[in-house]
Amino acid sequence: MIGRALKSLILHSASLILLLGAWEAVCRAGMVSPHLLPAPSAIFLRLLVQLADPAFLIHLGQTVLRIAVGLALATAIGVGVGLAASRNRLIGRLLEPLVRVLAPIPKIALYPALILMLGFDHASKIALIVADAVFPILLATYHGARMVEPKLIWSARAAGASERQCTFTIVLPAALPSIYTGLRIALLIACVVVFLAEMISSSDGLGHLLIRAARSFRTLDMFVPLLAVSLLGLALNGLATLAGRRLLRGFAL
């Protein structure tokens, strides 16, 4: 069973293994300077060493904290507004053009303004995460709630549920799979955008570590935070998959 899963994993990542192997070989053979491209094994080892270093863990913690707060806010706003827009025609009609205008704007451009208003610390970065992550959640909630089979609502209404009760006991649960999909997209966006914000202007966090390494031309240490934030995204994504399987058992995902 485990042997088979391992075999299929190797089979399905053959090209990745090959690429990493080639990368490693090129570095080992001394064909590129480690100042330009360190070997993958060196990057992994360095990450392991760093993970035992409390200073690195504090930076990691700052990044995770920002992601967590930003995502929580984005979820609350996105789900709330999305639900309201799907249940109320007026809100829906107001919201749709607004989203159409705001969604294609690169939110990162707002960052300098957010810094001016909220300062260099957590608040401006969290605000940026919210601005970026709220759209996929909002859209997923809105579309998920709009797709709910009307007969489900009719059945509930016929059984005596009020409009408000319907929203929370029928529409919200029925839209959960869609919200969940939006949340997973938002998760990766949050990881990416917080890292960029930390690179642009910060004194802590994983992104700051990259910039600090770049300033002193420590190439190996530039790859480590990049790898760390990518793995963080993958880990959160994996966690979301597990949680989704648990919470959405009744749905055909």
């Binding site: 399905h12 090209s15 990745l16 890292f195 960029l196 690179m199 990259l210 990049l226 934030v229 990518s230």
Partner: peptide, 26 residues
Amino acid sequence: AKLVKPLVATIYPVPKAALMPIIMLW
């Protein structure tokens, strides 16, 4: 598809703009 998919899945979570300092080295 089998060859490209794992590579895409690997690049997907990487903050692309964050590669800037490294790519500038090259």
